[in-house]
Structures are given as structure tokens and as C-alpha cells.
Design a protein around this nucleic acid. Structure first.
Lengths: 154, 154
DNA sequence: ATTGCTGCAAAACGTTTGCACCTAT
DNA sequence: ATAGGTGCAAACGTTTTGCAGCAAT
């Protein structure tokens, strides 16, 4: 178990919810926290398989929902039809800018967004839970945009 | 052809892009603009079928991408794995608040968001194209929340 | 005449489910 | 002992694709 603190959070959550504490769940947690960047359930499953894990696809899908419930990972949505996740353990909350040409994803932090969230919820009578804010853009600098360089080089 | 102005936009776009001007594309456009609220490609296809349209599913899917390219409709993403669209012809740009208990979707307008979009893009060197901002919430007033009422009544 | 578009069905894709077996409680 | 979790494969729902025929240019 590589992330003792995160493991504790998961263990406490499972106890509280009367869910069982199984080694597979901690294995998925470790893989999710170690994954560099955003991942889909299937990508995580494949990466675990490649490291000879014997955890099944079904367990990965189900466990990721649990990890999202206890805020160890955050669900993301970049406009394609794929649920993605990202470790949120010991990470600052942030949003995403996506270049539609090269697919590059840049993270940014803007404190005004949380304020808008609470303002709108107060005004309309809802309890805020989470939000998603994505900027779809195009690289200004075509020299560093993978899409333009791939086109030029081919 | 019920929406002359929208039809013109589509026609001009198709000419500009050297795509063919077919009756099916205008049929999908009319159905999309008339649809009340958000719809998936399949929902639109079904609703067209119910009105005895003979346009195929494949054509509906492909045409919706074209309509999104010329900004007659906007793609939406509410966290499930389903592409949705919404007419944006003659409609003010707006964002969405989703109640995770009852599924209710409330639209809202907040001018500060567009400012944040351009600020972030300027700062990071990207051209803004579009954005998505969704608030995931829970109804404060349980009496008007469909989810709680369904639970109580059953 | 030449492409590009259409309709159909099949395939693909990510995800969920049913079930027999296993294991944490 | 028992209920909840696991692994596997099959099923699911949405979207994409291949292809023959059709229609816009």
C-alpha cells in the first residue's frame, strides 16, 4: 500500500458505508493515484493489466465510482463520450483548457469560478456539489501545436 | 422549410465547405430547431421517425455535426456519456445547472464567465472557441424535487 | 459523368450486468 | 454462515463504418 493517507480515507469511507474492505479496491486506488494525468476506466484497467494486476475490468469500473464518491479522484468530461478521472488527492482544485487542434490539455486555477458557483446556486435554490468548466480553444502558437506540426511534417 | 434564416446559414455553410445541399440536411435542421430542450442524436432520430420522416440514423448523426460546425446548434455534455445538442439559433448563450437527485436542468446566464474565458485564453496563449460550464447540485427544496417526491410516493 | 450523400445493417466502442464462485465480516 | 465482492463473458446503448445505390453537381 503506497499511499497510506489515501488508503485511510478509503478505508474509513468503506467502513462508514458498510462496504467491504478488499485488496482489489486498494490496488485500484494506488493505480489511480499513480496515473500521470487524466485516465478513463479502461485506460487504467489496461495499465494495471500491463503491470500484471489480476483485478478485473468490472472491479476497476466499480471501484472508480467509489473513489469518486470519497473525493480521492475527480470525474472529468472533455466533450468526447468518455468518463475520465484524475487524482484529486492532495491536489488543488482546477479546471481545464483543451486545444481542439492538438488535443493538448492545460490546467488552470481561477478563484472567481467557485464564487460564481455559489452565487448561482444561492440564487436558484440549489446546494452546490461540484462543477465542470472546460475551455475549448485553439493554440495561438502554431509552432508548438502538435496538430499543425504533424500536418506540416506529413 | 420552416426556418428560412437558419436554412440560409446552413446553405451558405455547405456551399463554402463544398458540401452538397440535400433535403435531408434541412429536414434534420428543422427537427433540431423545433425540438424543445436538449436532445441526443438518437432522441432526435426517434422523434423524426415518429413524424414519419424517412431520414436515416446515420444521416441524423452526421448532420448534427455539421449543424454544430456552423453554430446552429450547441453540443452539451451533462456528465453522462451521451452527446447532446440544443438549438442555439436566435438563443442567448447560457450555462446549465443540473440537480443530481431529480435530473432537473436549469439554464442560467452569467456574464462573468465569458470574461474568465478570454482572460485565461489570453494568459495561456490560446484562441477561445467555446466553453462548457455545468453546475452539479442538489435541490434545496425537497418538496419540489422530483427525486424526493418519487421516493416518498412509492 | 462524377463524386459525395444516403440508408441499411453490421461493427465498434465504452460501460454495465448476470451469475457462479470466493472472501471479508 | 452469510451477504457482498470478484472475475468472466455476455449484453447493453450509443455512435461509427462499409458498402451498394442514389442524387446533387
Amino acid at each position: 500500500m503506497k499511499n497510506d493517507q489515501a488508503s485511510d480515507i478509503l478505508r474509513e469511507y468503506l467502513k462508514r458505508e458498510n462496504n467491504r474492505i478488499t485488496p482489489e479496491r486498494f490496488e485500484v486506488l494506488d493505480a489511480a493515484l499513480e496515473f500521470d494525468g487524466h485516465f478513463s476506466a479502461d485506460e487504467l484497467y489496461i495499465s494495471m493489466k500491463n503491470r500484471n494486476s489480476r483485478v478485473s475490468r468490472a472491479t476497476v469500473y466499480k471501484t472508480l465510482e467509489i473513489l469518486a464518491s470519497c473525493d480521492l479522484i475527480s470525474p472529468r468530461n472533455f466533450g468526447d463520450n468518455m468518463k475520465r478521472y484524475e487524482s484529486s488527492f492532495k491536489r488543488q482544485n482546477h479546471d481545464h483548457l483543451i486545444c481542439m487542434d492538438c488535443g493538448r490539455i492545460v490546467e488552470f486555477v481561477n478563484p472567481k469560478i467557485a464564487k460564481i458557483q455559489t452565487d448561482i446556486c444561492d440564487e436558484l435554490g440549489f446546494e452546490p456539489s461540484s462543477y465542470s468548466f472546460n475551455l475549448f480553444t485553439r493554440c495561438k502558437n502554431k509552432k508548438t501545436c502538435k496538430y499543425y506540426n504533424d500536418k506540416t511534417n506529413s
